[in-house]
Design a protein around this nucleic acid. Structure first.
Lengths: 209, 209
DNA sequence: GTGAAAATAGGTGCCAGCCCCGATGTACCG
DNA sequence: CGGTACATCGGGGCTGGCACCTATTTTCAC
């Protein structure tokens, strides 16, 4: 089983690598320390599985998941969350992830998750399953989908202090397209400059302060 | 060399353990997933070294460091920070830590840090050293004094998405003066545009996200 | 009372940001 | 089939942001 791993903390990558390679039939064929690199590596290597941290520079794990799943649907994705809650669970599943594992439990659950994905099954930690059931039973109405996925990607990169040109390179787009997405996002949100977008991105958890 | 490790993320503990035990003379004699447990284990095991995450439940790594160093001074402490900045560096050193390693660089720097501590030397990552030197060269005063009051006012208003012209009106200044204060603040902080100032202002608590 | 730092202000120049247009292709949905 | 949303790219133009430079006044510590 060929696996790509991505996390902005080197120590987590090392841990993942060693944990995964303790299994004889698992091979780590790529590593990335940000979301854009993760996407590029996953598309180039076409692994069986990509294990992505939710919170990474340039692209979040969820944004990277969308792009990977769109371009190479044969790649399964496992999302690693460092949060103690499940606030990104639904977005992760919508983005095409096969599983969602909390980092606190990752050392015990991760190999189970990998095996589940190998069999083509989804994998959720017990906490995640409970949250999902609760949501389905309750109301599915906590969607704040004001922005399209593309717009959100651009907003995140703007908030990380990238110029339009840099964003264009990261997303493989023209500068004009980036400007249009940013402009549309600002209009939707009623904002007038990048500065306001930064605070929005922080409130939404797209980036840390 | 006997080592205790503490981090609330299982995957990080696994990574640390495997990384450390790849060295023949290093033995991990204890693990903890929160700061209070870390303190208890360190005091009971009296290891040569305790490697602690800054952010843990019950006690932070810094609080645990203080208590460990007070009760068993023979235990050296390495602090692991998941943050991209050095905001806890000074507190860590004051608490009695021998070293400060960012998680993003931990897979390459950690063994160097362990060896340095073994020799009784302090260890700081290059980024941490730079921050320390910058601070010493500056003043004994805190980093909070990096900006003058006027500069801080301007930064706050910038982060609130005011234009230079608006800020000039609010502070009864010329636009030029505002630009100078903003420019000086950005130079002092090593930032290149307003977007970075916003995140700084939020981190500093000048504004809410 | 001298010197350093802060606060004030201006000039010049370049480029990025932001706006308004329009245009194409795709996908999905009733 | 036609409508709507999304993503993509472009032109043209105005303004604001930012850098680098100089310069005066105020303030405060030694």
């Amino acid at each position: 089983m060929r696996v790509v791993i991505a996390d902005d903390h080197g120590i987590v990558r090392s841990g993942l690598r060693m944990l995964l390679e303790s299994e004889p039939d698992v091979e780590v064929v790529g590593e990335a320390s940000d979301g854009a690199a993760a996407r590029d590596v996953a598309i180039r290597e076409r692994p069986d599985l990509a294990i992505l941290d939710v919170k990474m520079p340039k692209l979040t794990g969820l944004q990277a998941t969308r792009e990977i799943r769109e371009q190479v649907p044969s790649v399964s994705v496992l999302i690693l969350s460092m949060y103690d809650d499940e606030r990104y669970l639904f977005e992760a599943l919508k983005a095409g992830a096969s599983g969602y594992v909390l980092k606190a439990q990752a050392d015990t659950d991760l190999l189970d998750a990998v095996r589940a994905v190998e069999r083509g099954e989804p994998f959720l930690t017990p906490e995640a399953q409970r949250a999902l059931i609760k949501d389905v039973l309750g109301e599915g109405a906590h969607r704040t989908d004001e922005l399209t996925p593309r717009e959100e990607e651009v907003v995140k990169l703007v908030a990380e202090a990238h110029t339009n040109r840099e964003i264009a390179e990261i997303l493989h787009l023209s500068e004009k397209t980036v400007e249009n997405h940013r402009s549309n996002a600002m209009r939707k949100l009623g904002m007038r400059d990048r500065v306001e977008l930064v605070r929005y991105a922080i409130r939404r958890g797209l980036i840390d302060p």
